[in-house]
Structure formats: C-alpha cells, structure tokens
Design a protein around this nucleic acid. Structure first.
Lengths: 109, 109
DNA sequence: TAGTCGTATCGACAGATGTCTATATAAAGG
DNA sequence: CCTTTATATAGACATCTGTCGATACGACTA
C-alpha cells in the first residue's frame, strides 16, 4: 500500500488511480465501519472480541467489516492464539489524508 | 458544513457523527465521482458542459454525481445564464483531511 | 413566440452492499 | 478426543446505488 498518486486537487485523476483511491475511501464510507475503525484507532490495539458489543451488530457483520478494512490496508491484523488483534495502519491513513489535502487547491470555498 | 467532530483516531465516534462523516466520505468513494471531483479541483472553476466528455458517461449521470458532491458540501454550484459552474469547497475538503489526520494516533503500522 | 441549448429530473434496471442466521474452522482446555 | 470459545465463511435477502434513455425545465436567441 503506497501513496498511489498526487493529491486530488493537483490534476485530473486517471481511471486507475480513481478506482484505487475510491476503494480505500469506500472502506471508510460506511457508518458502522467508520465507528469500528475509530474504536480500533482509539486503542493501541483491539481484540475483535471486544468490538461486537459496542456496535450493536452481529459477530459475522463485525468480522466482515474488519476484513474490508484490512483488505483496504487501513487495519493490520495479528493472530494470537484464538484471538485476532487489529491496529490502525498509520501509513495508510496518512496517505488518505495527504490525498485529500487541499493545500494546492487554486479555487476557494 | 462544519468540522463535525474530532479526528477519527482520537476517540470512538458516536453513531450520529459516524453517519455524517460516512456520508461525506461516501460522496468521494466512487471512481467516477472522484474523477469528476478532481476535474473540478484542477481548475478555478468548471462548467458542467465540459465535464461529460472526459468521463465517458452520460450527461444525466454527470448531473447526478455533481448533485451528490454538492449536497455533501464538497462542491459549490453557481448558475450563470444557462450554464452551471462548480468549484471545490476548500473548507469541506480540509475538514475531511483533518478528520483523517493520524497525528494523534497511538498505535503504529 | 419558437426554437435551441444546457442542465436537471424521472423511471427503470442491473449489480453492489450491509445485514442476518447457520455453519465451518481453528485453537485451547478438560 | 470432545467441548468450548473466537473468528471466518456461506448463503440469503432487502436495500442502496450507478447508470441509462426519455423528458421536463429554464434561459438565451433568431
């Protein structure tokens, strides 16, 4: 998972770059998944076993969302015995924030 | 459109905040829409009439995507005669980038 | 006032997506 | 081994979404 491309404001995205960045954004663009991500981000790491209850969704649903976030590179997964621990990929998050940086934007609000 | 909430890394999001931020992220989480956004962002402003051809989708589809982006607060719309001009809301984009800022993240990749 | 041009809306439709229950897998512990 | 526990997968289903063609709306123009 690397930075992919220049910020969205600098130049028109190619179809390939747009597809890649949209996929990463889509991983965060769901309320339940975003809450899940923020739960993990709020701790050093999180055991999946502690994530089902606060979200009020079923265990398979949490597992599904964790997979989506992990596949997108936004979460790191580590197996320890029968437990799965997740942590945020600071690098991936930084890439996203940099991609959305309006620094080089010419127009104004 | 204001900043909504503290960065995703600081503390668990409420359901309401997660819904709001997910909605904004969702507006950018589509390849065609992201390309459209980057096309607008690359110029001071863009006439809708110039946005259909480079995207290879129909005019109603472009109009639909422009509405989604505008409703999300990411684009500003201005009518001039029979033309519609769009520009990026630097403020909204900045809010998003700040929301995703990993600065206060405790864990590491 | 007709006609043309730019844009938005409508209605339809296929495909994607979030959720669930049921079940499989895998690791520990008796 | 057999059971328990944590997590993942499978399959189903309702809803959402991106796209289109057809058409309506609004503003300029001849």
């Amino acid at each position: 998972m690397d930075a992919c491309c220049s910020p969205v404001c600098c130049e028109p995205l190619s179809e390939a770059d747009a597809l890649e960045m949209a996929t990463r954004l889509k991983a965060l663009a769901d309320p339940t998944r975003l809450r899940l991500f923020s739960l993990v981000a709020s701790q050093e790491q999180q055991c999946a076993c502690d994530l089902t209850e606060p979200l009020h969704v079923s265990q398979p649903t949490v597992s599904h969302h964790l997979k989506v976030l992990t596949d997108a590179g936004l979460l790191n997964r580590e197996q320890r015995g029968k437990w799965a621990y997740f942590s945020v990929s600071a690098e991936a998050l930084e890439d996203l924030a940099r991609f959305l940086d309006p620094a080089e934007l010419v127009s104004q609000a």
